[in-house]
Design a protein around this nucleic acid. Structure first.
Lengths: 144, 144
DNA sequence: TTATAGTTTTGTAGTCATTACAAAGTTAGT
DNA sequence: ACTAACTTTGTAATGACTACAAAACTATAA
């Protein structure tokens, strides 16, 4: 059992989620691939390790871990949800053109709860939508 | 032609969107119903006014106006998109329990573009997820 | 070990918001 | 009025996600 597996089990147990082989694999995949994958991508990426893993289990696992605040669900992309293990607090930038989601270091002041008190805040999200450098370059070339 | 209709036409023209009867109706509905409705709700709410209005047109119109930054698409709710005419810049609070989306006045400093420059930012979003006052009260009662 | 109950996983069959598409309708300019 | 370009409409599809029930697994106790 690797060091990471121990950490993952402890993290899950601390949040009230029973660690199973599949759940550990999904969370480790998210930790080792901080590129905000979709459920489909996680499933595909784990198939060689757990050939019997079903897509349903990946969805169930992500939903369960999101409910226990272990992972974040990113819904910028209208086509499908992306998932994130938030090691550090950060904002997200979504490129409208290529769909890539990039982490943006966040100013700690932004994570402060706002003055409006008529709401119990459990989660804060900050995101930017626009165009990444590569897509800007590509469009510029085309336009010349 | 009402005052508002004139304003809507000017707004659309200024953003490069040709104003049609259906498009004007959709945008006015959003302005007069600042409760972040879904496409289905907008369609239903306009049927008595334009009985032939199709749901496809509502979707097309919202997509077009979003592309021209006239309306915002809110994707917190995993079930369906909500739409917003942002009269003032504001954040959104989404209640995980009842699904209601509430406007939160935003500190103008938060809308400033961040220092990370490798990205052309066209839109900034700030949201909170949690529980609204009513849902908190209801749960408290249940727990007593 | 074996039994048993509770939990998790799996595969299949849906559901449903959203989009593609082509025909019909509308608008604008000549 | 004529024509080209644009918009709307209805239907049919797409595809992410979920419901469900059977099978597999895990933990605990006798």
């Amino acid at each position: 059992m690797t060091r990471t597996t121990r950490n993952i089990i402890d993290l899950m147990a601390g949040r009230g989620v029973r660690p199973s082989t599949q759940r550990i694999a999904v969370l480790r995949y998210l930790m080792e691939h901080p590129v905000h994958p979709t459920a489909e991508e996680i499933h595909h990426g784990l198939l060689h390790e757990i050939p019997t893993l079903s897509l349903t289990t990946v969805y169930n696992t992500l939903k369960l871990m999101a409910a226990h605040s272990i992972v974040d669900v990113l819904l910028f992309d209208p086509r499908n949800a992306h998932f994130d293990y938030p090691a550090q607090p950060h904002a997200h930038a979504w490129c409208k053109e290529c769909g890539k989601i990039t982490d943006i270091p966040i100013d700690p002041a932004l994570t402060a709860a706002p003055r409006a008190a008529d709401f119990s805040i459990e989660e804060i999200g900050l995101f930017y939508k626009g165009r990444c450098t590569e897509c800007q370059k590509r469009t510029d070339k085309t336009q010349i």
